[in-house]
Design a protein around this nucleic acid. Structure first.
Lengths: 331, 331
DNA sequence: ATGAAAGCGCTAACAC
DNA sequence: GTGTTAGCGCTTTCAT
């Protein structure tokens, strides 16, 4: 007998074995409706004896949706998103829901494709770090999809999202740097993090530091792009005295580029990195960072998408400045 | 009109719009059977006009299985597994299949739970980094699940798996260390990496270095456990002169523990870490590593599970010693 | 080449 | 309290 010929145990089998109708089995197993203690007992026993596992396929088709959660991140290789995913998984686990993971590579087209296949799978809840301007979310909403955005939000519409407090984080970093005497501060950010760019401009303005647009450089979410951005900045503007890297990959790229160009941190340039990662402490020099609760962002997003369908809430989580050794006074 | 009241466009709608039967629509869309060029045209046009998306639910129920791939890793926060997952995603994307991610935390019980829910979802292909002795895989095989193991394998049974060449990697590291004059070499490994432990003993034996069992310490797959293992080893045996960390988290823990105990690397102890990660180069000192093709492991595993059902193959990928600055001659 | 009809496994009306 | 029945959306014989 080949393994592939195994017939699946179904409600019908259980019903037969327990001497009841299929509906009763369904009721007992899902906890819906009522059943006498005696029958309940018999059904449970039969199910256990046959090692019955309800088919999610049948249930989902009937209910016309999947219980699962779609999770869309730019890059699972970036520890920030890995931690975020971990948070989502932790919450989904307690709800017993499967998580379907997709990576967008920060490409709106890929994002649209992924949304499409989630729709095909009848997934009705998704957590996403959106890229692009959010055009592609139209079909999703029309299909009744419950969406919670994480880390970033889509401009325009007012949609549920959970994010770190970028404004406060950037502001804290800039104030710290300015307090050390820095004036030519650069910002390295990813596309889609306009929030941080805005906050950066504001913080500078409030401190009376003129905004030099050439010192704000945007990168895509790949290591190569991050490196190019960092190296380009450092070469083009050797007068920068401090840089704020808007993410751990950007921070990594900055350290690498600086070494390559024999620019010493913090003697020649100070560095503050967004997102605390384990290696920040191991780095030479240990990096001063703005830590973000990546895990919590994921967890809260999952809570929102799971339990608060419809209520568009937006959650902002605090960041924290952790001073280590990558910043010094203005040279 | 509430969004949730949207009725899904079905084959029936398309059939009606195209003036044909549902069977024809199905045939045209799946590419099965035959249809005249004219009808094909009409069906395609109707489908496009109605923005029809076939429901995976219906199809899967009918076919009695899901196309998706289950992916089980110990910890998505560990960059090795994140890169592995990335490889799986890359391959799954080209096949258009969704990936369901679950984390086991290296806990056999959790692993069993996850296998169970994959079975409920009728997933028929899974890629897993197994933990435990593989008892829990029995039900999976009985259900006809196609499994490919990654990074580790389950002892006993001969099952498809793709792994880095641990034997060669460990051997290379040990030879390198021995060549530097080291004799009291410790190994930090994870449970489930018995392969590496065995290779370690063999390599030592071949070089005529006596095996000191106290110098082989096993940890669970968490940061805390890794730190405890590293710190414990370094404290208990201040005479060790070199350590081989069997994974990036173990390496991280070793650097941290060494700093805490004011043990200098490489002056006091040399360190070789399994798995090259971006921060290895940024670390102080830059870490000498045995690099592993994490992405490829995932990609190949996905290829195997997708295209080579049934043929139990086992793939071994090469590792490479990358010398940086964390090793020195025996003090 | 194409349509009608039979389910896949499940749940929710609806009867009793 | 419990059984019967009608689908959910799709693919696949089986006729035509």
């Amino acid at each position: 007998m080949k393994a592939s010929e195994q017939r699946r145990v179904t409600v019908k089998d259980v019903a037969e074995a327990a001497g009841v109708g299929v509906a009763t089995v369904s009721r007992v197993l899902t906890g819906t409706g009522s059943a006498s203690a005696a029958t309940r007992e018999r059904v449970l026993a039969a199910a256990a004896r046959l090692d019955y596992r309800p088919s999610a396929l049948g249930r989902n088709l009937r209910r016309r949706h999947t219980g699962g959660i779609g999770l869309l991140v730019p890059d699972i290789t970036d520890t920030f998103y890995a931690r975020l995913a971990d948070g989502v998984l932790a919450c989904a686990k307690s709800a017993g829901e499967p998580v379907i993971l997709g990576t967008t590579g920060d490409d709106p087209e890929r994002e649209a494709e992924l949304i499409g296949s989630l729709l095909e799978e009848s997934v009705e809840r998704v957590i996403a770090v959106p890229c692009g301007d959010g055009e592609m979310w139209g079909p999703a909403f029309r299909a009744g999809l419950g969406v919670v955005f994480a880390e970033r939000e889509v401009p325009g519409r007012n949609l549920p999202s959970v994010r770190a407090d970028d404004r406060a984080g950037v502001r804290t970093a800039v104030e710290y740097l300015a307090g050390l005497g820095h004036r030519r501060i650069a910002l390295l950010a990813r596309h889609g993090q306009e929030q941080r760019v805005r906050a950066f401009r504001e913080a500078l303005a409030e401190l009376g530091v003129p905004v030099d647009e050439e010192l704000i450089v945007l990168a895509r979410g790949t290591r190569d792009s991050a490196y190019a951005a960092a190296a380009g900045l450092l070469q083009r503007r050797p007068d920068v005295t401090a840089v704020l890297a808007g993410g751990n990959m950007l921070g990594e790229a900055t350290v690498l580029a600086a070494r390559e160009l024999v620019i010493r941190i913090p003697r020649d340039v100070s560095l503050v990195m967004f997102d605390d990662v384990p290696w920040a402490e191991l780095c030479s020099p240990p990096l001063t960072v703005i830590s973000q609760p990546a895990h919590d962002i994921g967890y809260r997003a999952a809570e929102l998408v799971l339990r608060e369908r419809g209520r568009p809430r937006t959650v902002t989580l605090p960041t924290e400045l952790i001073v280590r050794a990558s910043c010094g006074p203005r040279r």
